[in-house]
Amino acid sequence: MGAYILRRLISAIPVLLGITVIVFAIMEMIPGDPATAILGSYATPENVEKLNRELGLDKPAVQRYFIWLGNMLTGDFGQSYALNRPVLDEVLERFGATLILAGVAFVLCSGLGVLAGVVSAARQYGPADRAITFVVLLGISIPSFFLGMMMILLFAVKLRWLPVSGMYAIYGGGDLQDLLRHLVMPASALAVVATGVIARLSRGAMLEVLRQDFIRTARAKGVPERRVIQGHALRAAMVGIIPVLGIQAGFVLSGAVYIEMVFQWPGVGRMLVDAILKRDILLVQGGVVFVAACYVLFNIVVDVAQSLLDPRIKT
């Protein structure tokens, strides 16, 4: 098992390199140059050229890529010109906030999604199945940012149960309870869509598995139906569900961008959108690479979980 994890980690290296190449290549397509963006359009050509040289932008692309990569490996993601602080510091701070939001949403949607899918499959065409199917359909059809806005209107403005936005109260907040109160709405808005997708898929996977011959064998052995569903069928279905959980983690992370905008959550998504609008290229590059790398590592965890569950995967 240890060897398998090590192998998976090693095999992630080319993927991580690929990510940096893709990000760098995309950023190379940007018309104009950062110096103009930094200095504004009234800058003199001499100043622009000077800054370009300072930033190392006069060198060929390949060379610049390796310099950038080398710096990143030493923990130097560069300096955000708009915020005037190291990119890595900013990203790490913002990513923490995103992790809280997306992590809670991910746990919510995985648990609820699988549960809803199993119940739905076990009671196929029953009232519970129909209700879940409808809610799921609603969930995957509503834009998460719109849902978030409607939640603000209902729970914060109308009922005044929860704070409108932010991560902590401006005055007197800062403790865990305060964080949770601020977290309820964004996390659940974020979880709704992914819950729908996971529930749908889990239902399909369960129905598929319930048709398999080994389920008939379990019944023929006299295994109680409850255990057939919750043991034999669910375990086999998880083989199909777990990879989707990995993919959904990416969707939750993506959805977090919208939710952070709606709820003014100080996460990495909002940071990226601001950086794009301000053309703060180094911050965009650094943020994207950092988050993508975390996602790659998370997917290795998913793979390892899968290999623990399924002995047919060669470890």
């Binding site: 080319p14 993927v15 690929g18 990510i19 893709i22 990000v23 995309i26 950023m27 190379e28 397509m29 940007i30 018309p31 993919i247 983690a249 990416g250 969707f251 992370l253 993506s254 959805g255 961008v257 998504g269 990226l272 959108v273 950086a275 794009i276 609008l277 053309r279 290229i281 965009v284 994207v288 988050v291 993508a292 996602y295 790659v296 997917n299």
Partner: peptide, 25 residues
Amino acid sequence: MRGVDMLMAFPYILLALAIVAALGP
């Protein structure tokens, strides 16, 4: 498929954001 896997290694919005960042809004 290696190329495809590489693209799938991004949470989709990061890729979309990067593309929009490059091409402009």
